[in-house]
Design a protein around this nucleic acid. Structure first.
Lengths: 340, 340
DNA sequence: TTTATTAAAGCAATCGGTTGCATAACAATT
DNA sequence: AATTGTTATGCAACCGATTGCTTTAATAAA
């Protein structure tokens, strides 16, 4: 069990005061650059590592960013986190990551933990049933900045990083119309969440713009699970006039629904053209491959983390910037491509 | 911007010393239970939260556990982490999570960050090209405990939590043999990793036990990506005597290979029976559904975290327990079930 | 030579909770 | 009454880095 090297050890060895050592290691201008070199090399030689706790205690900050996401198990979220980690590391920030598992209750619990950990800032993507941001009030009161990404609620003094889900929903739907669909069903998640509410809005706009009429039975609000996909397929079979196009707000659910439909003898894309959302890896391995909306996770993570860090360093006022929109892309694959 | 409440504030208000307040909040036996109640309620009323940094600094521990995993984006890993989080929360430990993205280099970097964060213990699942545990030496020297799970390297004084991959590989292969397969191909990942080396071993044992001969061309070492699956399918098409069974060490790769084979006209399971590994959600949505090996992620996470915490609390010597084996289960679905 | 200026380094308090040891108050025992 | 024991609390040092203010030394200016 080795003991940790402290600045006092270095100071004693070099016949200097701890204050000088501390300043030197932090590149303080009042320290002779020659002294800095000597101290730095001695520190390295002795295997010195700053004690974050002493430093944090004194500085009243933690160099830690809290991240709360609904789930970790999506390829999308994984790339978002990779992006955040990259930026955070470069800026010498640490990440504390936790998942709400789509539960508001757990999100609140995570929020408490983050508060106790005294994170300097917060990056959050909301659980599906979160309706307001009151549980973050402790943070707001202390002036701890927060950035919401992907699943957001608009609120002043809180930057949002999102894609234009209305437009993406519109485009997905318009693409189906282009392929000749006239009766398009939309399967989506809780419309408490902007992502789903907006995609639905886009879907409706597209129908309207193309002179198609919507119908209540053509919009299904679900949890977007595998079972929901199967159930939707069963429901479709029961309909008097079944749809000829399907826009699902999540790839995984789209795939399970597609599978169930095909087993029931529905031909895809000819009887039913399908578009998903997110560009999950499954979209490529499935037969037929799934048309979907792709959007940049890594970039979203990087921008979120960078904006927060810039704000913490006083380089950017978060409350002035309010929404950052990223680009998405419709990726056309076989599930929707009819040979007209 | 509110200011934080400290034990000094509480002490002053109650005309007590900070020491008493501290002891009361930590349920120290020397404090009158009545006093404890008064202090606790006052603390709550004032919204007191312990300053972890002061506490950590003094106690020389952090109540933080570092977790390094290859990737976050698998359903399996997500449940592992959920299990760890649950146990850690209950024991008042925090989790710092990072992903190596299967790169040894990044794993080393993560290790350094963890060390700087002074985690009390480490839970690690190794990157695919990690060959030894030398980068953890700084931890060993300081007596910081580490538990490896799933992707491990055996080493004394380091508990491993795994399933019996040899047996699982054996069982998967034997199942294919049961279904009438006589020429079984195995697609796997880097055999530097125990999980893949062991599954391969099990595969070979099963062949041997059933009097089947293996062949070099029947074993493919890949990265288990989507592309590798497609490539494998292409290779199979080129073979003089193609296999009639396929055991792939990862569901995702199995699915992409299966898809490519089916497109080439191969009938599954009749021409080719397929077994995957991991029970990824994709196994259920694919057509035909994929036979696979399921193993308990949540449990693995809980046990790993609990063992580590027990060790930290002196309730368990990690170095005496060396390997914990969890159960797995072969889940037979349509991709391998022949109607004999 | 004296004074002002600047550069470099040190002193000592501080952050907030923890803990070994001392102390006070009171009860029990001899 | 004196001694021992018990219970509850306080004192003060400590963890290690940071930082406002002071001091020292060296150099420049008067």
């Amino acid at each position: 069990m080795e003991k940790d090297v402290t600045i006092y050890d270095i100071a004693k060895l070099l016949q200097l005061s701890p204050a000088t050592v501390s300043r030197a290691l932090n590149d303080h201008p009042a320290i002779n650059s020659n002294t800095k070199v000597i101290i730095a090399s001695k520190a390295k030689e002795m295997g010195y590592r700053s004690n974050m706790f002493a430093s944090n205690l004194r500085r009243q900050r933690t160099s830690t960013i809290g991240v709360i996401v609904p789930r970790l198990d999506s390829a999308f979220m994984s790339t978002v986190l990779a992006g955040m980690e990259k930026v955070a590391n470069e800026a010498n920030y640490n990440l504390i990551i936790s998942q709400s598992l789509e539960s508001f209750k757990k999100e609140v619990a995570n929020t408490k933990t983050m508060f106790d950990s005294r994170v300097d800032g917060l990056l959050v993507s909301l659980a599906s049933d979160t309706e307001n941001l009151d549980h973050f009030n402790t943070f707001f009161r202390k002036g701890i900045p927060m950035i919401l990404f992907d699943r957001v609620i608009e609120q002043k003094n809180c930057t949002n990083i999102v894609i234009d889900n209305v437009k993406a929903g519109y485009e997905a739907t318009a693409h189906l119309i282009d392929q000749g669909c006239r009766r398009i069903m939309h399967i989506t998640g809780s419309i408490k969440r902007n992502v789903y509410a907006d995609r639905l809005k886009g879907y409706r706009l597209a129908l309207m713009d193309h002179g198609l009429e919507g119908a209540d039975e053509l919009v299904k609000i679900t949890n977007l699970t595998r079972e929901d996909g199967v159930q939707a397929a069963a429901d479709i079979q029961q309909m008097n006039s079944p749809p000829d196009g399907l826009f699902v707000a999540s790839d995984f659910c789209a795939v399970s629904c597609m599978g169930a439909l095909m087993q029931a003898g529905v031909s895809i894309p000819d009887d039913m053209a399908v578009v998903g959302f997110n560009d999950d890896p499954v979209a490529q391995v499935i037969q037929p491959s799934l048309t979907t909306i792709h959007y940049p996770g890594q970039e979203m993570g990087e921008i979120a983390a960078q904006s927060l860090i810039n704000h913490l360093n006083g380089l950017l006022r978060i409350n002035t910037t309010n929404t950052i929109l990223l680009n998405y892309e419709l990726i056309v694959r076989k599930s929707s491509q009819r040979h007209l």
